[in-house]
Design a protein around this nucleic acid. Structure first.
Lengths: 229, 229
DNA sequence: CGGGGACTTGAATCAGGTCAACCCCAGTGG
DNA sequence: CCACTGGGGTTGACCTGATTCAAGTCCCCG
């Protein structure tokens, strides 16, 4: 299915991208050891993998951001995660990818064959453990998210999203939001209208400042933290 | 919070419980090999482990059911999962348990030291893989649940719960619900009232039959499946 | 300049929460 | 044996907050 774009697209990008944090290094090493290729920057909306396709590759975001979402049979979609530089994708899949993944903004990603990773893991119990930990982390993130969806109101959801996203970016006070309001809404279980309204209210309340609709500044982090509960 | 009740309550139960399904056998074997102990049947509400405690053990439900939930700082709780015979608990934890776990009805559980499991897994890449797969499954269940919480209405949530629970029990048409309405509500992100009302509506619609409040019969599985979307 | 997509905002609507009353039943103690 | 109590459950009336419907604005790009 997935029209994987020409895999050896060349364009020899400098191997050291700016921002990728240095943790999770068992896996980073594996990415270095296994025949990893770096794809040219992807255009916004460009597909990385497709829900239901055989999960043959694992990816890492080097630059930019990636959205992953599931398509429901009734046509709606649920955005399960936004991935930023340093994050891995596709690790938690079984045989098939359970989500679609596509680039937001001009993302750059690295690719590793799942089979290569599995081969390395069979020999290296440390790597196996690291892979396991990645899934545990994904699970815990998902549970945290479920908790927000189950019990929190619109304001809490939006604030939780902003704080969480900021944290993953290294807690900048001002940040760029590469996703649309619709993407946020589909992530938070709200409508685009409610998200928009809520952001407006946060701004008039003086908690955030929106220089433009995609550019937000967090003003009172402590107050925001308190809203998150 | 909940006082731990006398741990060695005795009452030597027959070791072969009825229902535990035979899949996931790498892990079952590990349970057999590692110094596994079987606890006497637990009374309803009896604590298995506590949120925040060091995760030294992994458990398997042999009989009955177990509820696990998280306590929020504002005092509310989110029920993350109901575990039935055959299910494992505590595998997906990091260093500490992220949830409370306690027995519903008279559950029997087996216990294995985490350290023993880790030791076995370091030597046996098949077991390591099985452990990893368990976390992946937990993750996927959590994501499915998040999807329901994000987008579905009360009816869909309750129906999804009934069908899912029935599936885990081996898809019986009639089943016993060992949890309270409050437990269901805290799992589904609803109030006890809405759960109760919804069940009543499902009954008057002829989709289920409630012999008593804890005893439900699913009448039109196909219709119910359709509601689940 | 004109068109379209992303975003915002107001008014009406409705699903689920809140408040409150009530039932049912198992224990318990007089 | 029965009255009392308390927890679980059901149900109605009302209220609130998010969705829906419907305009509108902003801005990028041709």
């Amino acid at each position: 299915m997935t029209a994987l774009r020409d895999p050896a697209a060349s364009s020899p990008t400098p191997p050291s991208a700016t921002s990728a944090p240095a943790e999770r290094c068992e896996l980073c090493e594996a990415f270095a050891i296994a025949s990893s290729s770096v794809r040219a920057p992807l255009a916004a909306g460009e597909e990385i993998f497709r829900q239901g396709a055989r999960a043959s590759f694992v990816y890492r975001v080097l630059k930019g951001a990636v959205i992953s979402y599931r398509l429901l049979n009734d046509g709606r979609r649920q955005v399960t995660e936004f991935h930023v530089a340093g994050d891995f994708l596709g690790l938690e899949a079984g045989l098939e990818y359970r989500t679609m993944a596509e680039a937001l903004g001009g993302a750059t990603i690295a690719t590793v064959r799942r089979a290569d990773l599995a081969r390395l893991a069979a020999a290296d119990s440390g790597l196996a453990r690291a892979l396991w930990q990645m899934s545990v982390q994904a699970f815990q993130r998902s549970e945290d998210h479920a908790m927000i969806l189950a019990r929190q109101g619109a304001t809490e959801r939006v604030v939780a999203f902003l704080l969480d996203y900021a944290d993953r970016l290294g807690t900048p006070d001002i940040m760029d939001l590469p996703m649309t309001r619709q993407d946020m809404a589909d992530h938070l279980g709200l409508t685009i209208h409610t998200v928009s309204r809520t952001l407006s209210q946060l701004q008039t309340a003086g908690l955030i400042e929106a220089r433009s609709s995609r550019h937000v500044r967090l003003l009172c982090r402590d107050l925001l933290e308190r809203i998150r509960a």
